[in-house]
Computed example of a mutant assay.
Amino acid sequence: MELIVYLAGQIHDDWREEIKSQARERELPITFVGPMEDHERSDNIGEEILGKQPNAVLKDEAASSINNLRTDILIKKADVVIALFGEKYKQWNTAMDAARATALQKPLILIRPESLHHPLKELSNHASLVVETPEQAVRALSYIFES
């Protein structure tokens, strides 16, 4: 058995690599997918595909349509979604992806520090599992493969 795991969350640090590395160390049969991590490409994909847009709002609209297409397809194909909420960056896209996962009844592992318990309490209530670190999320995935 192999799992497809969607990694939802901010793209400004290496938390995804931390999870992927720990999964490789445990030799877990997992394929990881997620949002476009190249921020500039993500912002410009609308114009790359649809052509130059007349203003910044329409440029954002074009990019978001294509990014949403990618996200919808990859979350629908995923067996599990891991959504990381940290304290440093705004987490709007993470919240949207986690909500997509729950709406599609995908198992959701929510990673968040204890300090974000209150603002994420409703979302936490819909998650399959809430942990505080990426390492705890990988340990939970590892448990799935135990005999």
Rank of each mutant, 00 (worst) to 15 (best):
H39Q: 11
V130S: 15
E146P: 00
R70S: 06
Y143H: 11
F145A: 01
I45V: 15
E114M: 02
R26N: 05
T31E: 12
L7P: 00
E135L: 04
S64T: 12
Q53S: 13
Y143C: 05
G86W: 11
N55D: 15
R41T: 14
W15D: 03
S142W: 01
L50G: 08
S147T: 11
K121T: 07
A95L: 14
E114V: 09
A23H: 01
E87H: 09
H117I: 03
E87Y: 04
S115V: 15
A140I: 00
V33N: 01
P54S: 14
P35C: 05
E135A: 13
V131W: 04
G86N: 15
L129H: 05
D14L: 14
E114G: 04
S21G: 13
A140Q: 08
L7I: 05
S124N: 09
E87F: 05
E2M: 10
K90G: 09
N93V: 10
A63V: 10
D14E: 12
A137D: 07
H12M: 05
R26V: 01
I73P: 01
L84G: 00
K121I: 14
E40M: 12
T133N: 07
A23S: 15
F85W: 05
F145P: 00
I49H: 04
T71Q: 04
A95Q: 04
P29K: 03
N55K: 13
E27N: 13
N68L: 06
A56Q: 12
E40Y: 11
V131S: 08
D14W: 05
G46M: 10
I111V: 15
I30F: 06
L7S: 05
L69M: 11
P119Q: 05
T94L: 08
K121W: 14
T31W: 00
S64C: 04
N93Q: 09
I75D: 03
Y6G: 01
E27I: 02
L74Q: 06
S21L: 09
I82M: 07
A8V: 06
Q105F: 02
K20C: 10
S124T: 06
Q53F: 08
I45L: 13
V130H: 01
V57P: 00
M96S: 07
K76T: 11
L123E: 02
L141T: 01
W92L: 13
N93Y: 05
T94K: 12
P134Q: 10
Y89I: 11
G86Y: 11
N67T: 04
L110G: 02
Q91N: 15
Y143F: 09
A63C: 09
K77L: 10
E61H: 08
K76S: 08
S124Y: 02
E17P: 00
M96E: 01
V81S: 07
T133S: 13
K52D: 06
K77D: 07
L104M: 13
Q105N: 12
E37T: 10
I66Y: 02
K52E: 14
D13C: 05
I109L: 06
F32P: 02
K88T: 14
I73E: 10
I30D: 03
Q22K: 14
E2D: 14
P119H: 08
A137F: 03
L58D: 09
L3D: 01
T94W: 11
E2H: 14
T31C: 04
N44C: 08
L141M: 09
S142Q: 12
L129Y: 02
L104N: 01
V80D: 02
V57R: 09
G9N: 07
W92E: 14
Q91E: 12
R112C: 13
D43L: 14
V80H: 04
A95G: 15
Y143L: 13
